[in-house]
Design a protein around this nucleic acid. Sequence first.
DNA 1: TTCTAATCGAGACGGTACGTCCCGTCTTGCC
DNA 2: GGCAAGACGGGACGTACCGTCTCGATTAGAA
Lengths: 194, 194, 194, 194
Amino acid sequence: MSRPPAGAAVHRADVTEAIRAAVLQELATGGYARVSMEAVARRAGVGKAAIYRRWPSKLALIGDVIGDVLVQPGPPTGHDLQTDLRSLMESFAGLLATPDLPAIMADLASEALRNGDLSERITATVGTPFGQRTLEVVDRAVARGELSADLHREAALDLTVSCLYWRVVVRRSTLEPADLDRFVATVTAGLKAL
Amino acid sequence: MSRPPAGAAVHRADVTEAIRAAVLQELATGGYARVSMEAVARRAGVGKAAIYRRWPSKLALIGDVIGDVLVQPGPPTGHDLQTDLRSLMESFAGLLATPDLPAIMADLASEALRNGDLSERITATVGTPFGQRTLEVVDRAVARGELSADLHREAALDLTVSCLYWRVVVRRSTLEPADLDRFVATVTAGLKAL
Amino acid sequence: MSRPPAGAAVHRADVTEAIRAAVLQELATGGYARVSMEAVARRAGVGKAAIYRRWPSKLALIGDVIGDVLVQPGPPTGHDLQTDLRSLMESFAGLLATPDLPAIMADLASEALRNGDLSERITATVGTPFGQRTLEVVDRAVARGELSADLHREAALDLTVSCLYWRVVVRRSTLEPADLDRFVATVTAGLKAL
Amino acid sequence: MSRPPAGAAVHRADVTEAIRAAVLQELATGGYARVSMEAVARRAGVGKAAIYRRWPSKLALIGDVIGDVLVQPGPPTGHDLQTDLRSLMESFAGLLATPDLPAIMADLASEALRNGDLSERITATVGTPFGQRTLEVVDRAVARGELSADLHREAALDLTVSCLYWRVVVRRSTLEPADLDRFVATVTAGLKAL
DNA sequence: TTCTAATCGAGACGGTACGTCCCGTCTTGCC
DNA sequence: GGCAAGACGGGACGTACCGTCTCGATTAGAA
């Protein structure tokens, strides 16, 4: 029956969407480690094979879905460092205030430390974009003369939001608006000393 | 038949020690997620029940064993903020340089966000002691006049080592001695602005 | 755009034939139980739907294809019971010597015991024709005076080839030409006692 | 913790029995091919691992359980061939009258034709004992002078009950007491002609 | 010293989930 | 319409661990 390769068969978009939605719900219910493919399939009303046809592993699936959640705002638009920095940190504080997201971020961090594929994926999807946005803020401040021209740009990446992450994820404390003000001031001072 | 209540028996110390050792070896061979109670028992030459008699869950076991690893240095001994701060950060950088420890720290962070018992345990074992050490450093600096007396002590807890953690755990980059110098300077500046 | 209603379409004969051939090849490569519709379709270069359009189930497909294999010789032509009987038994022995066919016959037997549709189908396709051929042999022998006129015709159906089937299918032993001679003599004697 | 090999751990008899019972029920419900380990475990209220700990495969499990069902009566006790033969055939007819047993026998026959291990197991468990009982009957008849001393003993194995099996399993007809009388007479005649 | 009860290694237990395979049906786009 | 391709929901496969339970066989503290 050799015939020219006829009709195709393509992943159905509605199924894909049902799976993504189910993953998010499962993540919310028990966190990364408790997500089971079986439960995702059940909740999505989908066969397990439909999932494995799209993603080769649980990690790839969750990593991909998370990418959607960690979307970040556009480029900085303020007229001074403080404003830009505040916008950056506020948006990150928003993620930290999203239910379950801190735990998911911590999960992904630990998994990525062990899994090169996931690490690359997360870096490409989330890390690099966020880093670029941070560097834009810094570079604009340098251009304005607010920061030193020979500032260590790499180190700047570690200063902006790490204190927020530490507060919420590692110390499991809460982040109030007043805290944000303080941190913006502190980080500004820190960057100037860099 | 009815006799007075007789002798007891106590967890044998050598068994306990064999389990702790096995956990550490398993952690080294694949990280937190790959540790299985079955494998720990096998490696320790111990029945699974002997483990569950001592710890209620895998998490508790690993959390406890890790506690030993996360031991911190004693109280600050320097004569200025920079020195004390550097000692604090260097010791934390040492933990971050220990194989698997970053991933385990991230695991525990995410688990603790979901598990109140574990959260309390970790706070008591690691969080509070480390916080107190940090506050001592800060308070000494205030006493010396290096820092403002109305500095926000709570926020200081989030500034000292968060950038190191972020660099290694979240950004999965490496931490060089030169970086440490930079971060000590920056954090000092940040604290002064607090 | 609007075209005449356009002719109906009919199952293409070459596709049907490709499927039948593929089934036989698959049967040869692992027996009934290992035949998968997926493999048949693959081997035939055919979509699975093309198979299900023609046969409602795996069983029906295989049962049908096997029907072709179980074709039997024409009516008896000998001049005595022995000769007719021998021809009947030899042809059946030939089926039993065909690779995989004993196992397939046993499969179909057990399936038919549970599945009325299949039972009817097999009876109509194979059972009845074979029974009629047997009865012709018996009736001719009665007409010749070789067998009693009040012989129990129904029971005769159970005597002719059952010993061959038992030998090969149930006892999993081999059937030699010398065995056939013996069985022909025995069955003749048995029929005469009926 | 190297210690002398201490306490054992043995398969629990009640669990084993629950599994055997569940297998028989499943066999009755859908036949060999429809028996799933999952369903057996579910029905027995048992984990799948408990089954796999006892039997390496579905085939081994079912083959073993079936062995219990196909138990046969003791040695012949009659004073003539007819009586012994009738007892043999009656007991086999009893098996054929047991619900589902014909289908199971047919299943096992076809599986055994493809699976050497199962074949050996069935031969040892059921085939050989039954053959020996048949040969005892024949040998006693030879000793009494009822059968020829140079009768082909192997062929005798194929004559005794094959017609019953064929009637019920292959032709899917019923077996009445009157049929049994007829078959006993016929088989006797057949054996004498052997 | 004897008794007795908790501990020990071993591993079976009921479960849950893994990732793969195939079932029989459904969908897409070409012919 | 039939067709090849193959995605779909479903369900079973055999394996690996989970945390619990059950065995006899040590221990060792209390009597």
